[in-house]
């Protein structure tokens, strides 16, 4: 078998279009998902009441069902329920936003709850008001502690966008399949796409490794 670079040099712009779609979907689902995650996280931290129960249900539900099921369900079932069909890309962003919301809410909760209770007591004993304690004592270290888990999830999200090819979103894997169909150079296009995913995700994995090592080092000092 010959690896045909020629076909790549001709058709690579379509793959780059797909990359653009991949990145756009990641960006918007992160944007909407993280906003939702803040509310879900606060709901879970509240510990009781309706807000708490709803948050626990939403987080557990969207963390447990497989991404593919969620994507198909939103794309196919929402139109049956509401009579209006969303575009494939909007459906995909909606599905992944829910995925982001549920997972990032858990990451945020873990970050906040790992706050040293002694530091909270020290801050309270100085008469510092609650909102200042949140802004200055709780959130900055929580962000630092949650960064490895968050970036780790980001790599999962990037990979999950490839599932949207199944509902016809023209992201990278979809483009690779279309170009493969047209040119029969499946191997070439899928290899290119794999290389692009690697280039996107590997630096993030390196970041996670370093950030974790840094946190461990801090604890040991």
């Amino acid at each position: 078998m010959n690896f045909d670079f020629n076909v790549l040099t001709i058709h690579y712009p379509a793959v780059l279009d797909g990359l653009l779609v991949t990145l756009r979907i990641c960006l918007f689902s992160l944007l909407f998902g993280v906003i939702d995650a803040v509310f879900l996280c606060l709901g879970k931290l509240s510990g009781r009441g309706a807000g708490y129960r709803v948050s626990v249900f939403v987080v557990d539900f969207f963390r447990t069902i497989p991404e593919v099921v969620l994507i198909f369900w939103i794309y196919s079932c929402l139109p049956l329920l509401f009579g209006a069909r969303l575009s494939a890309e909007i459906s995909g962003i909606l599905a992944l936003s829910l995925l982001v919301a549920a997972n990032v809410a858990e990451i945020m909760r873990a970050g906040v709850q790992s706050t040293n209770p002694g530091q909270l007591e020290a801050a309270m004993s100085l008469g510092i008001p609650a909102h200042t304690i949140w802004l200055r004592i709780v959130i900055p270290p929580a962000l630092q502690r949650m960064s490895p888990a968050f970036v780790n999830f980001l790599t999962e999200l990037i990979k999950a966008t490839s599932l949207l090819s199944t509902i016809g979103v023209a992201e990278m894997v979809y483009q690779a399949n279309v170009l493969g169909n047209r040119t029969f150079a499946y191997v070439e296009f899928l290899t290119l796409v794999a290389a692009i995913y690697f280039a996107l995700i590997f630096p993030l994995s390196l970041f996670v490794r370093r950030a974790e090592a840094r946190l461990v080092a801090q604890k040991c000092r």
């Binding site: 040293n116 530091q119 007591e121 801050a123 900055p140 270290p141």
Partner: peptide, 11 residues
Amino acid sequence: MVFQSFNLFDH
């Protein structure tokens, strides 16, 4: 108030 475990803000 001063605590047994210092409770300085590490960051």
